[in-house]
Amino acid sequence: MPVPAASLKRLAMIRHVIYLLVAAAVIVPFIARLHVGDFQPGPHATKLYKKLDSLPAGTRVLLSFDFDPGSDAELTPMGLALLRHCFKKDLVPLVMTNYPAGLDLARKIMEDAVDDSQKLWGKKKVSGRDYVLLGFRPGQVNLVLKMGENLKTAFETDYYGKPTVDMRALKGVRSLKDLKLVIGISSSAWVETWIIYGADRFGFEYGAGATAVMAPDLYPFLDTGQMVGLLGGLRGAADYEALIKQRGRGTLGMSAQSAAHLLVIVLVLAANVRFVFRRLSGREKG
């Protein structure tokens, strides 16, 4: 209901105080380099990790980064952790995106992962041989169906313009049916699209990464076995980084996330304490 002007002013002041507290809760842990310490990765992230870890070296894995820069904060750490794992295990990641706005993001994640592979494990990864950045093609669901028929005609060249037809990294991969595992990271309904039009049709196993808001909606797919694992939000990224034993933005964000969550809990409890106190006072007066 509409609020009187005086209350609006008071609410505005309280709001500003809350904003300052939230800012402090997020910034201070970064500046003070506070770490939450070791934590147990969740079961869904562990399932995805085990699945990827069980693949032999040289296995081609498709990763679809279906998000735009708006979801960069939550989903990029996941993408990076997965690529690092792929390079550590000498798998051959094939990276694509269904978002034109996400193409550049996919490229950056790929390049960062390639640099990390060199730094962390001394493994130099070469495009076209050890990985492929397929890029973006329009078509949405039709693109998935086309990839299910012939991946190389769906992506005739990679992001860098090299033809895919004789690419070493795509040897033995004619279509999605030849892939053992596909992982989709998305902030929208693309996870379900990959399951319905991809995994169910072409028989590959599917793992997903999603924002924290969308992750609970995907639990039923885990129960039915249509997904082999799920990374949910920044916590999912941190879980995966813990599993591959490489700290990244996900782990770094846990301290800020913990502080922010705790702050919200404290604020809610404080507001309720005040609320209850006022009610009781009112009763006493009455």
């Binding site: 309280i14 904003y19 939230v22 820069p69 702050l263 604020l267 309720n272 209850v276």
Partner: peptide, 30 residues
């Protein structure tokens, strides 16, 4: 795109954290 548009988008998105805190404070009453 990388250094103007993307940070602007991220900035607007990050306001969500503040708004969630203030909305939670205002409305979660028993």
């Amino acid at each position: 795109y990388d250094y103007i548009l993307v940070p602007c988008n991220a900035t607007i998105f990050s306001i969500l954290a503040f708004f969630i805190a203030s909305a939670a404070f205002r409305t979660f009453r028993a």
